[in-house]
Design a protein around this nucleic acid. Sequence first.
DNA 1: CTGAAAGCGCTAACAT
DNA 2: ATGTTAGCGCTTTCAG
Lengths: 352, 352
Amino acid sequence: MQRKSTTLKDVARIAGVSTATVARVLYNNGYIADETRTRVQAAIQKTGYRVNTVARNLRIQRTASIGHILTGIVPNPFFAGVALGVEQEASQHGWSVLMVNVQGDAQRERLGVETFIQQRMDAIMFTTPVSEANVRLALEAGIPVVQVERPTSIATHMVVVDNYAGSTEAIEHLIGLGHRRIVFIGGDPAVRSADKFFGSYVEEERLAGYRDTLCKYGLPFDERLVILGQYYSMNEPFETDIPLKPLLQGAERPTAIFATSDMLAARVLQEIYACGLRVPGDISVIGYDDTFARYLAPPLTAVQQPMIDLGKTAVRLALQHFQDEETPPAKPWQQVKLPTHLIVRSSTGPVR
Amino acid sequence: MQRKSTTLKDVARIAGVSTATVARVLYNNGYIADETRTRVQAAIQKTGYRVNTVARNLRIQRTASIGHILTGIVPNPFFAGVALGVEQEASQHGWSVLMVNVQGDAQRERLGVETFIQQRMDAIMFTTPVSEANVRLALEAGIPVVQVERPTSIATHMVVVDNYAGSTEAIEHLIGLGHRRIVFIGGDPAVRSADKFFGSYVEEERLAGYRDTLCKYGLPFDERLVILGQYYSMNEPFETDIPLKPLLQGAERPTAIFATSDMLAARVLQEIYACGLRVPGDISVIGYDDTFARYLAPPLTAVQQPMIDLGKTAVRLALQHFQDEETPPAKPWQQVKLPTHLIVRSSTGPVR
DNA sequence: CTGAAAGCGCTAACAT
DNA sequence: ATGTTAGCGCTTTCAG
């Protein structure tokens, strides 16, 4: 907003018409004489006029902007994927997106929401809300909210992933390869106990898929093969040790491991190699997310999350509120569940 | 901007004062009677008033917002790091950031700049501009510009990395371990020939560091050990093959490989393993960026780029324009060069 | 087909 | 210590 730029008024003066007329040619509204249009367009050209969105927004009482709150765009590339999807879909519809990374901090999240309200964002998205209270805050300001991937129990639009199916598909793949002793390793749901989530935790859904699939194929569910820990950190990429060695060096070594993120799977690979084992020769590994799975050695079989699509869908839900502006009968919140896909690469193979 | 929210005027009416008075307590400006302040604060509390930033921006002719254009936040996590740095530093100073991902597309980049101009962003940042013309576009609109990491030849603020030193440090580390046949693998500078860059290409700087260091230690520069290719793609993560096998299976096998990104290094590891070799036993590998280097097997020695700091510094440069508003003698564009650090992990070892 | 004019919600002189 | 008021740049009725 540096040096003063051309205004509509300037253009009008130069073209010798009123501001209303300029606005008409700008938005192709109403009748306008061809000759006038040409004259106005020439003036626009000449001055390099560009509409002042700030003034426009004030006038029309909309900003066509989405505030996007991310738990942490780093270190897990999953979030960058969602952010990209959000931005792409938004800009395709002429919307803008403001982004705030809170790195897991509820206080910063609150500030983000507060700012977004002040900026009069037309919608607010949480790609993984940290605190319920902040979701409520946005809602109370009368702003449509979309929660992505790990919604709280508060009713808003939601777009989630079919974690149960994703997990099921992974385990079935392993069972199909002859595996019977399969480790499940994931973040501990209890860690997020501060908030109540809608439905069940992502991690719980995946665990349920694991358990039910074993059951379905008549395999025993062995609690010792389930490893849950607080492996996620927004700032320090997992310094926590993964208690896998005992299993790997024990008598009844598992033949496959299902990890609930690529980052975790990568750590699992490191542990496996440290024990002198080979993948998939001695043990198969499946990751989740499909972020940098393809870059690991060997290229990792992984449950692919529809990151981009998650973001795009979230935007579509938000835009709905404004599409049919004539239908104020505020439609209820919607929940969309997206499928996952198992990408089979080289980290899984038949059991020996 | 949904349902009509409380305005300053409302608050004034309820508190029984003028809007000017409310503004005074809001910003703690000028004299105000304690009693009045209390009354106003009560009214603010009661109504849940929140300043309308849109109106405010129009009035003060500033937006306190930065438009951030990213070549592609996916797939290289490097960009997410920069984006985080930008956002953190901005919000710490009460600034907002709009983000646009152009995924390497000059057309989309242009649209992004155009939008940012219309939104009256106070500054525009390019984390790796795609096209010179777009940088110029922003500049012509009178908006301060910061180019990050791979600036074009256009003069603006710039924050870059000391690629030469980064490369030098990596090669010295290898030479110190006794390596003499070291492969350099990187993106081909010629690929970006469409634009002229300021100083030299990032890749060229790194190559120069490699070459000069070999020279310094009296080692021969062997062109056959330099592999340059178009390994980067914004959308499909490198499908291109890396022509490394001939070298790995040849007579005089190199004992170390220096790759100019983690993504490339990851691919190199895969090739090495495919040839049945071990790291670092048979061959050492160094990556660049230090994004997911720690997650590879073995954990990768890598030249760490100051991603967050790159972003933060860029914001600081942009803010300078507004700090000392009284000094209109527009100070010249500044260029800041940030250091890299070699993070030694387990992918490098003494030559056998 | 075109123009006049009323604000959107706020800030900052300028008065008092 | 507080109030009045003139815009910021734009959109959109309402008149003609």
